[in-house]
């Protein structure tokens, strides 16, 4: 494992670093001593069999695990050099910088407009109504949804199709202009066409944003990501360039998983 850290030399500087992270749910350890860097403006995929702790690890980055009482996180996680568990850190600020998209699209039962405007409103990002509308439209465009909903921004967000809903959630996350977007199996509930649209979108988003995506689909990881981390039973078994992980993994477990023998 130590060796891997040396070999995985990120081309870009790491915007987020995790060192020796342990996560416990009560007495159950879900993450065991994981160390991983997230390079800026790239897509990092976290793969591994179900229940291996991918989501748990992802949720450490924006401290979403704080919302679960029994969940205890330890280790050193830094965003742009700042320890995110430092008492001086405001989770509100942290989550504004690090957005999240969930497995199941979860638009609020509000209008499309209000969904996207939610973040800018709570964070006071717009000075005027016009500015807010501008942000909403810009975000919808960046999420590749604007053309489909331009004439019905007042319709309920829940009236959209599954794929559209997920893109609405991406637009909602983008609206506060975060540095990083965490995506937890964003396409697992979508059909192949909707999935393809979102994968394309991610490709275009990586210029502005750093993306960490959890996926159970190795094909998806191979298609979209530049870096990949493979988790197994709470441990990070191997990580590095996606090309390498998928063509020439160092670890036998990784090899087995990639070739479909486990998971």
């Amino acid at each position: 494992m130590e060796k891997q850290i040396e070999t995985a030399k990120p081309v870009k500087p790491a915007i987020m670093t995790a060192k020796n992270v342990d996560v416990f749910y009560g007495k159950n350890q879900a993450i065991d001593n994981v160390t991983l860097d997230i390079p800026e403006n790239q897509i990092t995929a976290l793969i591994g069999p179900s229940g291996c702790g991918k989501s748990t690890f992802l949720r450490c980055f924006n401290r979403m695990n704080d919302t679960i009482d029994i969940c205890k996180v330890s280790g050193d996680i830094r965003f742009a050099g700042q320890d995110i568990y430092d008492p001086k850190v405001d989770v509100v600020a942290l989550r504004a910088r690090i957005g999240m998209v969930f497995q199941k699209a979860n638009p609020f039962p509000k209008s499309i407009y209000d969904n996207v405007a939610y973040g800018p409103r709570i964070h006071d990002l717009a000075e005027s109504k016009d500015e807010l509308t501008e942000i909403v439209i810009k975000s919808l465009k960046r999420a590749g949804l604007y053309d489909e909903v331009a004439d019905r921004l007042d319709d309920s967000g829940t009236s959209l199709s599954g794929g559209q809903q997920q893109r609405l959630c991406i637009a909602r996350a983008i609206a506060v202009d975060p540095q990083i977007i965490l995506m937890d199996e964003p396409c697992s509930a979508l059909d192949p066409i909707a999935t393809a649209i979102i994968e394309e979108l991610m490709e275009s988003m990586k210029e502005r944003y750093t993306i960490v995506i959890v996926t159970h689909s190795m094909a998806q990881a191979a298609r979209v990501s530049q870096k990949t981390g493979f988790f197994h039973l709470g441990k990070l078994i191997e990580h590095g360039d996606t090309d390498k992980i998928f063509t020439n993994p160092d670890n036998e477990l990784t090899q087995n998983y990639i070739s479909g023998r486990i998971g």
Binding site: M64, T67, R95, G119, I122
Partner: peptide, 8 residues
């Protein structure tokens, strides 16, 4: 979760 994830 969606709301917390936005920093609310």
């Amino acid at each position: 979760d969606a709301s917390y994830g936005m920093g609310a």
